[in-house]
Design a protein around this nucleic acid. Structure first.
Lengths: 197, 197, 197, 197
DNA sequence: GATGAATGAGGTTTCATTCAT
DNA sequence: TATGAATGAAACCTCATTCAT
C-alpha cells in the first residue's frame, strides 16, 4: 500500500476548468441576484469551496473585472471571426450589429450581466481600457461610422455609443417578442442605418 | 362660528422639507455608492436620525420607489410645461429631447440615479405604472414617433426606447465635454431625427 | 366669535375611559403578539396617540404591571361576589374553581395574557404582593385547602399552586373542545378534589 | 488498498463542542433575560463570534427550536434509561415523576428555559411532533394513567397535562426550599397519586 | 492547491421614550 | 393634556475574506 503523499505534488496549473466554472456560475448568480450575489453562492454553484474562489480571484472585485473582460472578449472574438473586411461599410456595420444581437439572444444572462457590469463602477478604468484594446477588426468599421457622424459635428465615439444604445433597445424588444427575433434585428438595423445615410 | 376643538392639538407636522432632504441625500449617496448606499448614511447626510428616515419611508425599497417617482415627475413636469402642442412633430420631439437633456445636464446625479433605478428591480411594476400615467402631453408625440417606425415594421414603443437610448448616449458625451453641451444636444438631435425622416 | 382658549382648561381628571381603552387594547395586542407588542400598536388600537399612553403609564413595564393587577382584580372581584362563605369546603373550592374557569372561558385572551404576565419577570415582586392582598374571601378557603395538604407534609401554598396548575391544564383542554366546556370543568374538578379527600 | 484522494482535504470540522457551547450559553442567557436574549450575548458567552452562531443555527428561531429538542431529549434520555417497564403503574409513574424533578432540580435554568420554550410560539409544530416521537417507554405509562382518568370522563392527555402541572407546582416550592427537595418530591407525588387511586 | 469554519463589520429595521407644538 | 415626529440604541442577519487543516 503506497502513501498517496509520496506522489510528488504535480504542481498542476490552476485548472482553467475551475476558473471557467466560477465565471459561469457568476453569470448565473448575478443574472438572478444582481452584482450583490454572494461569493459563497457563486462558489457553490461552481462546485468549489468558498475559499477556492479566492485562489482564482484575489477579491470579488477582481472576479467581476475578469468576468467583464471575459464576456466582452467572447463578443469580440465572435465579431472578429469571419469579419467581412472588404465589404461595404453597411455590410460591415450589419456584421457587428447582428453578431452582437445574435450573441445577446443566445446568451441573455451573459448580456444582462455584461450590461450591469458596464454600468457599475466595480469595473475599473484599466479593465475598460484593456477591453478597448481587443476590439480588433471592428475598430476600423466603428471608426468609419464615427467619421460619418463627425461630418455632422459629433465627437468621435458617438457612433459606437449610438450603436450600442440602439442594440440594447432592440434587445429589450426581442426579450418581449422572442419569436420575431430575426425580423426585429433586421428592421431595427434598417432604421439604425438611417443615422449614417 | 369656527370649531376650535376640531383642530387637534398637533405635535409636529411631518415636514416636506425633511422628506425632501432625505430624497436629496439619497440622490447624492446613491450617485456615489450605488443603490447599496446605506440608509444610515442617507439619513446622516439629510441631517436626521437613522430612525427618522423610516417615519418618512416604510423601508429602503419604499424610499427608492418614491425617489424614482419623484425624479421622473420632475422631468415630466418640466416637459409638460410649455409643451408646444400645436407645433410640428419635429419641434415637439425636439422639445422632449432638449428638455430631458437640459434636466440631465443640470442634475447629472439625479439622472445617474434615475438610470440606475430604471434598470434595477427594486422599482416595482406599480411604480412604473404610476409613472407611465404622468407622461401627459409627451405621450401623444411619442406615439406619433412610434407610428412612423411602425410603418417600417417595428413594434410600438420602439421609438421611445430609441430616443431614450440616444439621449443616454448623448449624455455620456456631454459629461466628457460639458462646454459643448448645447451644441452636442442640437447635433445629436439632428442625427437622431434622421431615424424618422 | 369667542376664543376657545378662553374656556379655562378644565383640568379634567385623566379620563378612566382612556385608561381602560389602553388596558383593553393591551390585552388584544399582547394576546396576539406577546409581551413584545409595541406600545405604538397598543396606543393605536386604543384610539389614543403614542405619547398619550405614557401620560397614563410611566413606562411599558408600568403598564404591564398595572394590567396584571387589573386582570387579577377582575378575577378576584368575581370570586368574592356571592362567595358562599358558609358552605362546605368542597363547595367553596368549587366556587373558586368554576369562577376562575368561567372567567377564563369568557375572556380567553385575558387569561392568556394573565398567564404570560404571571410567568414573565416584568411583573415585580411588589405587584405580586399587592395582588396577594386582594384575594379576600378566597384566602380562607385556599388556606383551609392548604391545611389539608399540610397534614401530608406539604408546604403552605402548595394547594393554591396545585389548583392553579390544574386549572390551567383544564383550560388547555377546554380550548381544544369548547363544546364540552361545562362538562370538563366539572369532571376536572371531581378529579382535582381527590387531592383533598 | 485505500483511496486517499477520496478523503477531501478538510478545512475544519464543525465542532460539536462549539455547538454545545452555544446551546449552553443560550440556556444561561435565556434563563436570565428571557427568550429576547440577544444572539450577540449568547455568542459572546459561548466564546464565539457573533456570526459563528449562524453557521451552527440558521436563525435565532432555529437555535431556539433545536435547544428545545435538546432539552427535552435530555429529559427523555434520563427517563428511558432504566425505565422499570415491568413494575406497577404507580412505580412507573414515580419513575417519571422523580426523574423529571431530579433533572429540574439539578438544572433549574434548563427547566426554566424549557418551560418558556414550551409556552412560546417560536417552537414550531414540527419540533413538537419530533419531540413527541422521543417519548419512548414513558408513553405507555402516561397512556395508562390517561385511561384511568378517561374512566372519569376526562379527555386523553389530561393525565399528562395534570402531571406536568403538578410537577411544575412542586418545582416552584423546591426552588424556595431546596433543602427539603427529596422530601417534597416524595410527598407531592403521594398527593398527586391520589388523582389516580 | 483545496477546503469550509470562523470572523466581525456593517446593513436594515424596530421601538420605548422624549419633547416641541 | 394630548399629540405624533424624532430619536438612536439595539436586534438579527449577511457576507467578503482569512487561515488552520
Amino acid at each position: 500500500m503506497r502513501h498517496c503523499t509520496l506522489i510528488p505534488s504535480m504542481a498542476r496549473a490552476r485548472s482553467p476548468e475551475k476558473r471557467n466554472a466560477i465565471l459561469d456560475a457568476a453569470v448565473q448568480e448575478i443574472a438572478t441576484a444582481g452584482l450583490g450575489a454572494p461569493t459563497a453562492k457563486i462558489a457553490g454553484r461552481a462546485g468549489v469551496a468558498e475559499g477556492t474562489l479566492f485562489t482564482y480571484f484575489a477579491s470579488k472585485d477582481e472576479l467581476l473585472n475578469q468576468l467583464y473582460v471575459e464576456l466582452k472578449s467572447e463578443v469580440y472574438t465572435r465579431m472578429n471571426a469571419e469579419f467581412p473586411d472588404k465589404a461595404s461599410l453597411q455590410r460591415r456595420a450589419w456584421h457587428i450589429w447582428s453578431t452582437y444581437l445574435g450573441w445577446a439572444v443566445a446568451f441573455p444572462k451573459k448580456r444582462k450581466v455584461s450590461v450591469q457590469l458596464h454600468l457599475s463602477d466595480v469595473v475599473s478604468a484599466e479593465t475598460r481600457a484593456q477591453i478597448a484594446g481587443q476590439r480588433g477588426a471592428t475598430d476600423a468599421t466603428i471608426a468609419e461610422l464615427g467619421e460619418r457622424l463627425a461630418l455632422r459635428g459629433l465627437p468621435e465615439g458617438f457612433a459606437a455609443a449610438a450603436m450600442s444604445a440602439m442594440q440594447e433597445a432592440t434587445m429589450d424588444f426581442i426579450t418581449k417578442q422572442p419569436r420575431r427575433r430575426e425580423e426585429l434585428i433586421e428592421k431595427a438595423f434598417a432604421v439604425f442605418w438611417r443615422l449614417f445615410r
